[in-house]
Simulated assay, not measured.
Amino acid sequence: MRVTGYRSLLTRHEWGRLTGDANGVMPGHQTDVHVLILETDEGLEGIGVGAHGDIDRVFGAVEGQDPRAVTALYDRMLACVFKTGHAGSAFGAIGAIDMALWDLKAKAAGEPLWRTLGALDRFVPGYASGLDIALDDDALVRLYQQYADRGFSSAKLKGGHDVRHDLRRLLAVREVLSRNSAYPALMLDANESWNRTQAVRFVTELERSVDLAWIEEPVRRWDSGGLAAVRQHIRAGVATGENLTGLEQYRPLLAADAVDIVQIGNVWGITHFLRTAAVAHLYDLPVSPVTYHTNPVAHAAAAIPNHLAFEVQHLTAPVGLAIDQEIMDGGIVLGDEPGIGIRVDEEHINAVRAANPVAKVAGPHVRPARAGLRLVPDLPRPAAAGTAVLPTGKPA
């Protein structure tokens, strides 16, 4: 079997609500979902997900190769961008191809990927994560009631602007989840919006009333000194790593004893996840995957010894995709379909050539100009009459 080509598709996920974080809010209820289909000379096709606009930089490393040699092809892709660098969009393309290669490998074996990777149990414990910063209190409670109905007893909220606002929301979600556990686990994600002093002050205030399991990305992802300082002055664990594009980027964080929960992005692929999890295991650290549509890395999470909890953001599938998994009992139950378990209905998807996401001037993927430079927490500014204000302080 040989890789002969690829197709790129663009579909959307319908959230039914606004999503965002401390850096901004998406303008609508939909987000793009990029799908990669690797073609082979035997007609078998592999599915990967995630933006892969730089695919032509690395596809030559796998073209004509046997897709079952996944780890060797992963290193081959990295080697092809050795001089120009593999971070950013190139790493996204490598991750999407890597997923599709693992999908092909498991399909060729006629078994689900979790089985190919050596997992014994198909259940992957998780936590609820609603990307919820734009929701008012009532909408927040309604959302997490849906997660509670699926058995979740832990949740991560987006916050970081107003400690009183975040405390009120954490307490409300704790109440919702208390029907599944006497001690629900609560986390807060600041999405790199603070400096180290802000982080310690903010979390210390929250911890007067809430026992946080972890604070996520309190400072910049590469700030090993800052993360270590925050970790030394709060009770909560420090979680980070979702935006690190390469195993080597974890080295300074681990050397500085700066992280309690090692996070790994789904969009960076199966091989990167497995290698990072192995390094974290060397330090006796748990790993927690930061999710992406279809939860592809859940198969790998089922097969490692130090998986803590898998982020579950969505309870439905993107348009045109069917996923062989169930969200129940507070986690993900993986199915028996060969491969990653993603089926694609191309008739319901707008097929397009892979392209890098268009640059935005606002939203959760754009760093605000004053992030980490505020003396006091951000509070909503008074709006003109008749203008709604989002929790970000921006007009709706």
Rank of each mutant, 00 (worst) to 15 (best):
L379G: 00
P318R: 04
I97C: 02
T387P: 03
V290E: 09
D329G: 13
E45D: 06
Y183H: 15
M26L: 14
V173E: 02
D257H: 15
V267D: 03
E216M: 08
T11L: 05
L117Q: 11
A255C: 00
Q232G: 00
D257V: 01
A396L: 14
V262M: 08
A383W: 09
G24P: 08
G64P: 03
W222N: 11
R179L: 02
A388N: 12
T294H: 03
T116W: 02
G28E: 13
E175I: 05
A385S: 12
V35G: 00
I304S: 07
M26N: 15
T204R: 14
L143F: 00
Y144S: 02
P364L: 10
A236P: 06
E217Y: 01
R174E: 14
G393I: 04
A22F: 12
V124G: 04
Y283R: 14
N243A: 10
G393L: 10
T4Y: 04
A139G: 06
Y147T: 03
Y147R: 09
R275S: 06
E45F: 01
R12N: 10
G48E: 01
E207A: 05
T392L: 08
P289C: 06
A90L: 03
I332T: 05
C80E: 13
V141N: 04
S8L: 02
E39R: 13
V25L: 15
L282T: 15
F91R: 12
Q145C: 00
Q249N: 08
L44N: 02
P252T: 05
A301I: 05
L282G: 07
S153D: 15
G95Q: 08
G60A: 04
T71P: 05
A148G: 12
R231L: 02
R57E: 14
T294Y: 04
L390D: 14
A213E: 13
A277S: 13
L254Y: 04
R367H: 08
V352W: 06
D136K: 07
A228P: 11
L227G: 06
T316I: 06
G88I: 07
